[in-house]
């Protein structure tokens, strides 16, 4: 199965491990991600002022381009990219003014027909948990995993249509199927403070303490996420604040890659501040 793929800026620079582990783990599951021949930044945030059509142009162009790749699908893994592409797509589909303005500006005729898919959805719907189980060694057995969703994947539920916004479970389903022991903790859809890292890093530190502390108190050995900004905020801040809980924070695709026994080079685990390699590499089957 081939699916057009939008990596996004961060995955070509500071989160290369998310890109390589996503491609490698999906390839191992029989899904080939074909990077779009041309793409730009998605804009990262969905504009919330009603008249800010310019904030949707970049995402609309990416969606229109992806519709020419055929197949009617577009995969993207960064939570921000997924959020923006999905919401702009929804707006183009359901809001005539948005559709008309963006198409006129871009000289396109795009109507929101592409289905934006997250690799978590690809794992569950396109591949299937049974197949994943078959292909993976039972190497995550007993590993205590905290699944962290953050904001952008799940909210607003009506537009994202991703999972239950208060208690999503798609990551838990995948990692339980792989033998891991997923921990239940109340902060999985809390916000890490996001871009406030640039403006009020004290706020982000407090959020990291709450989120990591909550997972640690439930015995989590590793936390998984699909967002490079969550990963950074929860992980890298520990360089300045060593008192924060030391649970490694990795991309879910990296842990999936471990379960699929993928080579170390494709995982990019060396990018993180708290090193997950001593805990994880030995678990490959």
């Amino acid at each position: 199965m081939k699916i057009p793929y939008f990596p996004g800026c961060t995955l070509h620079s500071r989160a290369k491990g998310l890109d390589s582990s996503t491609r490698a783990s999906l390839a191992a599951l029989g899904v080939e991600l074909n990077e779009l021949p041309q793409w730009t930044c998605c804009g990262t945030v969905f504009p919330l002022a009603l008249d800010n059509y310019m904030g949707m142009v970049a995402a609309a162009r990416i969606l229109a381009n992806s519709s020419r790749e055929g197949g009617g699908k577009l995969a993207t893994v960064c939570s921000f990219c997924y959020h923006v592409l999905k919401r702009v797509n929804h707006a183009i589909k359901h809001n005539e003014e948005v559709r008309q303005k963006l198409n006129t500006y871009l000289e396109e005729n795009y109507t929101g027909e592409v289905q934006v898919l997250h690799p978590l959805e690809i794992c569950r719907q396109e591949v299937g948990l049974e197949v994943i189980k078959e292909k993976a060694a039972n190497s995550l057995k007993g590993l205590k995993v905290a699944c962290y969703y953050g904001c952008m994947l799940v909210r607003p539920a009506a537009e994202m249509q991703f999972d239950d916004p208060e208690n999503p479970s798609i990551m838990e389903e995948i990692f339980s199927a792989l033998g891991a022991e997923v921990v239940d903790y109340p902060h999985k859809t809390a916000c890490c403070g996001s871009y406030q890292i640039l403006h009020d890093s004290g706020l982000v530190k407090q959020k990291a303490q709450e989120i990591l502390g909550s997972a640690a108190s439930k015995g989590a050995e590793v936390m998984v996420t699909s967002c490079p900004l969550c990963q950074f905020n929860l992980d890298a801040l520990r360089e300045s604040y060593p008192e924060l809980p030391r649970i490694p924070v990795v991309y879910f695709t990296q842990l999936l890659g471990i379960a699929l026994s993928l080579p170390e080079e494709s995982l990019g685990l060396q990018e993180h501040y708290v090193d997950a390699r001593p805990l994880l590499l030995g678990r490959r089957g």
Binding site: G8, C9, T10, S13, R14, A15, C41, G43, T44, V45, P47, G55, C78, F80, S194, Y195, Q196, I197, L198, H199, S201, P228, L229, Q231, F232, A236
Partner: peptide
């Protein structure tokens, strides 16, 4: 005003989203 050590490390998406919002 963003500390240079931070600027060299943050994911690009933090800069784009931060500047768009703030």
């Amino acid at each position: 005003k963003i500390p240079p050590e931070l600027l060299l490390k943050v994911p690009q998406m933090a800069l784009t989203s931060g500047f768009r919002k703030l």
